[in-house]
Amino acid sequence: MKEWHAAGQKIVLVGHSWGGDRVILLAQENPDIPIELLVTLDLVSRKGKSPKPANVKHWDNIYIDYSIADRSSANMIARTGGPWENCSGADYNHALNTLPDMSYTGHANADRMFDMEWPKVEKI
């Protein structure tokens, strides 16, 4: 990330599950590097929610609403891991499994989550 920044590249960080927690930590560990876009896909962490890092310009949080999610094994693992769901510090929050059009979407569907964000990532 430091090499990309030194080369004048815009930085986009994307993380799913515990990887979402890791990209937030990465941004916090590098406060001198501006992050153009941070994307978290059903972020999970046992330590609880963190605020938006100061060096992040825009944070999109795509998540599963576990109050209405099914009991599939992937969703149960995410529940155990500590899902963040809606994050007050994010600039954009979107639950993928909202009613009334609740086709199966769960923690394991990172590809579907990323498909929503790909157009934003490509613009950067």
Rank of each mutant, 00 (worst) to 15 (best):
E3M: 11
W4N: 15
A7T: 03
A7M: 02
A7P: 01
K10T: 04
V12L: 01
L13W: 04
G15L: 00
H16D: 07
H16T: 01
G19R: 05
G19V: 06
G19M: 08
G20L: 00
D21V: 02
D21N: 11
R22D: 09
R22E: 11
V23K: 00
V23M: 00
I24R: 04
I24G: 06
L25F: 07
L25G: 10
L25V: 06
L26M: 11
L26G: 08
L26T: 14
A27C: 04
A27I: 03
Q28W: 01
Q28N: 08
Q28Y: 08
E29G: 05
E29I: 01
N30W: 00
P31F: 02
D32W: 08
I33T: 07
I33C: 02
I35P: 03
E36Q: 13
L37P: 08
L37G: 09
L37S: 06
L38D: 09
T40I: 04
D42P: 01
D42M: 02
L43H: 15
L43I: 05
V44Y: 05
K47H: 10
K47G: 07
G48W: 03
G48P: 00
K49T: 13
K49L: 10
S50Y: 09
S50H: 11
P51Q: 12
P51T: 13
P53G: 02
N55M: 09
V56C: 06
V56Y: 12
H58M: 10
H58Q: 15
W59Q: 05
N61K: 02
N61M: 05
I64Y: 05
D65S: 01
S67N: 15
S67I: 08
I68V: 15
D70L: 05
R71N: 15
R71Y: 14
S72Q: 02
S73I: 09
A74W: 13
N75G: 05
N75M: 06
M76A: 14
M76Q: 13
M76P: 05
M76G: 12
I77K: 05
I77W: 03
T80K: 11
G81E: 11
G81V: 02
G81C: 12
P83G: 00
P83M: 00
W84C: 12
E85A: 12
N86H: 13
G89M: 08
G89V: 05
G89L: 02
G89H: 03
A90F: 01
D91S: 03
Y92E: 10
Y92S: 06
Y92D: 04
N93H: 01
N93Q: 04
H94P: 00
A95N: 01
A95C: 04
A95M: 02
L96D: 00
L96M: 11
N97V: 10
T98S: 11
T98E: 14
L99G: 13
L99M: 15
P100D: 06
M102H: 13
M102P: 14
N109L: 07
N109V: 01
A110M: 06
A110R: 03
A110I: 03
M113K: 09
M113F: 14
M113P: 09
F114Q: 05
D115H: 06
E117P: 06
W118H: 06
W118P: 01
V121Q: 03
E122S: 12
K123G: 03
K123C: 05
I124S: 04
I124V: 07
